[in-house]
Structure formats: C-alpha cells, structure tokens
Write a protein that binds this DNA or RNA. Structure first.
Lengths: 148, 148
DNA sequence: TTATTAATGAAAATGGTTATCATTATCAAT
DNA sequence: ATTGATAATGATAACCATTTTCATTAATAA
C-alpha cells in the first residue's frame, strides 16, 4: 500500500482526503502512455487492489479531471478515455486515430507552429464570442497502415 | 410525403432503396444549422412522421455518415450529434463548446494560419505514420458568456 | 401485378456511466 | 494513540444512449 505521495499536497488543495484509490489511479495514469478507459483501469488495478470498485474508478476519474490532473476525451467507440496531463510542455500532444481499429497515435510534432496557432485561435475566439476558453481537442482521423 | 429528391441519385450509388425515413432525415439535417442528436431528430420528425422509429433514425444516421452525407461527433454529454456535411468549402467549420450548458458555436472565420497548420499536419502525419488521413476534429472548449 | 428482399419498427438486450445507501477509512482534535 | 465527524468507498440497482433481434412492410425489377 503506497504511502504519502508527491501529488498529495497539490491534491489536498482541491479535496480533503488522500486515499488509496486516488493515489493508485493517479499513479497508474502517470506511468502509462496509454489512453485508458475506466474498465481498463479497473482491470489493471484488480490484481493488486481487488477491493477498488468500478464506481470509485469513475468517481475518481471525474475528480481528477475536474482538478486538472488528467484529460478526458473520446474517440467514438462509446467509452471515455483518460490520460495524465503532464505539466511539461514537451509532453503535450494531440491524437491521430484509426477509425477502423481504434488505434491512437500521439503526435507532438510541429509544436511551435501549433502552439502559436492554438494561442492565437484561443485569443480570437475568446474575444469574438466572449468565451473563457479552457482548452482544446485536436484530432486527426483516418485509416492506419494496417487498415487502409 | 416527399417525392423523389435531389439526393436520390447520389444516394443510390451507395444503397439500393430510397425510402421516406432516409429522405426525411437527410432533408431535416440539410435545413438546420443545429447539431442534433438522434433523439432530437426523432422528436422533430414525430409530428409529421409519427411512424418513424428511433431505431431507424440511428440506422439511417449511421448510413448517412458512412456514405459521407453527414458528420458525427461528440461534445462529451453522452450522446452523439450529427450535422449535414456541406459540399461547399465555405461552410467547413470547427466548434467552440461550453462545457457547462453545452452550447455549440460554429466558427469558420479561420485564420490563414489555421488552414496552413491543418494542411501541413495532415501531410506530415500521413507520411510519418503511414496513415490515410480522412479528416479532423478541432474543438475549443470553455465557458460561454452566460456560464462563466 | 407480382416476387424478391432491403428496410422498417417494436421490443428486448447491451454496455457505459451514474445514483443510492449502508459501511468504512481518513484526519483533525484530543 | 484514540476518538469522532464525515468524506469516501463499494455493491447494487438504476439510467440512458445505442444496438440487436425478428416478424412485418414496402421499394424495386421483372
């Protein structure tokens, strides 16, 4: 059972209690580069922590999203997927998805141009539509090597 | 009851039968600028065509998507939304979504940089990952005027 | 007009996600 | 270290969008 963790302090500014499921779920997502669904997370943790229920997975993922630790997104296969939100700019990425087999490729090429574009677009949209722009999803889709 | 329609011919290259539900659903989507869910479409058509079942709505939407008449996308509220895919380049647009009330703003006043960015990214991703890139979703999200 | 069979619609099934509520575990105060 | 208040959990059931099943209906070719 993990002890206090490096995220505990940051976490505590948002919610009151640091618990094993929160620790373990956040830890798992921070270590993997996969885009996991709630069920996949449940299955991954089951061997080591069979006591953690699927309900708690969902609740925790929602909490982690609302507090900015993870991103939630969908690729159209009917379930939500989650990924750790790295603080490092270098690790920011977008997705290239195969609409046939569901494979997801993270890409982070072009970041300079892209960051510039994103920044400008956010500014423009904020002004023009009086929005408080919080984030963005950029996804390209098509057929992967095997499926095309 | 609508007679043969301007889309019939194009449609027939994909499937064999031109039916009332297909006519009516495609017609509705082509006239509205809303991003409708299956249920909303069902409700819209119910007064005039109470015989059309929700099952057929789903089946037809899937067909229209596969044959390139409409786009399917999600804003994270648990249901899929559909929009007519205009042939005109001018009408291509992206979405700005309010995560609180679900309001969607289409914006198509792209900056040159955005078009440039999309084009370059598609090219590079195609080459680098050997993908056949078919399209993209670009969405910015945040809080709208009323919700922020 | 008729035969063929694609398309439909009602109902049931599916599957991801959320709500309910009794129980458990965290943590501040002692 | 113990305790008490209550936040968090987990099992179950509920919910809801979507899909499957299958008997019936209707579009098209002959």
């Amino acid at each position: 059972m993990p002890g206090p963790h490096k995220w505990q302090q940051r976490f505590r500014t948002h919610v009151s209690r640091w618990t094993v499921p929160r620790e373990v779920i956040l830890d798992l997502l921070s270590r993997t580069s996969k885009h996991m669904s709630a069920k996949e997370i449940y299955a991954s943790l089951y061997k080591m922590y069979p006591g953690i229920g699927l309900t708690t997975i969902y609740r925790t993922l929602d909490l982690l999203m609302r507090t900015g630790f993870i991103n939630k997104f969908t690729i159209g296969d009917g379930q939500s997927r989650y990924e750790f939100k790295s603080g490092k700019k270098k690790e920011h990425h977008h997705h290239l998805t195969c609409i046939k087999c569901g494979k997801i490729i993270d890409y982070s090429d072009f970041m300079d141009e892209e960051l510039e574009f994103v920044k400008k677009t956010e500014e423009t949209l904020s002004k023009r539509h009086n929005f408080n722009v919080l984030g963005h999803n950029i996804e390209f889709y098509g057929l992967c090597e095997k499926c095309k």
